[in-house]
């Protein structure tokens, strides 16, 4: 999108194209399949047949280059923080991050005395949606992902941003 992104003045055609683009993006946010701790189990349950993330267009991808959404599912240790950052940087634009569970949002049970845990993944990468819970149930994760879809739907990819 680099060439066309935020290049056009607002008018009817651009608005309609914007809507088409953001609708396309929001209905197929493929997510990056990796987990750092126990929240990953709930993420797997959400992706499996009972909750079935695929009905909202989310397909797990094993490569950061094919993924649009990174679900940080679980405790991010200091050792992992550098790797999470690297993986985020490898994703292609547009990219979104969902911080799933207490650990990824704030450090969780380790937030005061855990010397080895990152106190919230938003310290190293920008987060779009926070899903609280320890771990959150698949319904909660799906709620968060629907919020993310709403957020994507409101975007205007082509329109020039007002200064």
């Amino acid at each position: 999108m680099g060439l066309l992104e935020n290049r056009f003045n607002d008018n009817v055609i651009v608005e309609k194209l914007d809507k088409l683009l953001s609708w396309g993006r929001s209905t197929s946010p493929w997510f990056f399949q990796f987990g750092t701790a126990c929240c990953a189990i709930e993420m797997m349950a959400a992706a499996a047949s009972r909750h079935d993330l695929m009905r909202i267009g989310m397909i797990p991808r094993s490569s950061p280059r094919q993924a649009d959404v990174m679900i940080v599912a679980g405790t991010v240790t200091m050792k992992m923080a550098l790797r999470v950052k690297k993986l985020y940087e490898q994703m292609a634009d547009p990219k979104y991050v969902v911080a799933m569970g207490s650990c990824a949002t704030s450090g969780g049970p380790y937030w005061q005395h855990g010397y080895h845990v990152l106190k919230g993944v938003d310290i190293v990468i920008p987060v779009d949606v926070y899903v609280p819970g320890c771990p959150p149930r698949p319904e909660a994760l799906i709620e968060g992902l629907l919020k993310l879809q709403e957020q994507i739907l409101d975007e205007r990819p082509l329109t020039r941003k007002m200064a």
């Binding site: 200091m78 550098l82 704030s106 450090g107 937030w111 005061q112 010397y115 990152l118 919230g120 310290i123």
Partner: peptide, 11 residues
């Protein structure tokens, strides 16, 4: 700090 990331709690 660890590689520029603050380690103790800061929030």
């Amino acid at each position: 700090t660890y590689h520029g990331i603050v380690v103790p709690k800061m929030k």
